[in-house]
Amino acid sequence: MNTKNFTMKTQINNLNRLILSATVIGGMLFYSSCEKDKGPIFVASTVPVSFSSTIQPIFTANCIGSGCHNTSDATAGLDLSVGNAYSNLVNVASGGAGGNYNTAIRVVPSNAASSILWNKVANTKKYGGQMPSSSALASGDISNIQTWINQGAKNN
């Protein structure tokens, strides 16, 4: 009799646990599939972005520290210091990351999505990890780089 009571109690406990678990996970399932959002996409501004006054200062502030893309270290053969950055980027093939993407172009004018530079700063992982590796650029800086490339990557 005691064994039968014990078995029944165990089954009721199991049923309670099952109902509780199903309720918890059911609620989470609902919330984890309640949206169907896609985005964000960037709609380029018609205001021209200047390389010298907008883009180069981003490189100077974030990319040319010791051991990085300054003239003396020029990691991965890329120098982003003033006077050298433009000629190192636009229509130049990369030789970095063990030859994994050495035929890709650092900046393809009018095509940010195909440019290594934008893919690296936007951390799309298309060409390895994010740059700067320590922390991402501000969203506005990434947007400005994207706009500058899509506007033709001019040396303006």
């Binding site: 959002d37 896609k38 985005g39 964000p40 996409i41 960037f42 709609v43 380029a44 501004s45 991402a136 501000a138 969203s139 506005g140 947007s143 706009t147």
Partner: peptide, 16 residues
């Protein structure tokens, strides 16, 4: 991340 005023949902109309 901060969202700039140029960023939209995939419909290109609704601000993200």
């Amino acid at each position: 991340p901060a969202v700039s005023s140029n960023e939209y949902y995939a419909d290109s109309v609704t601000p993200f």
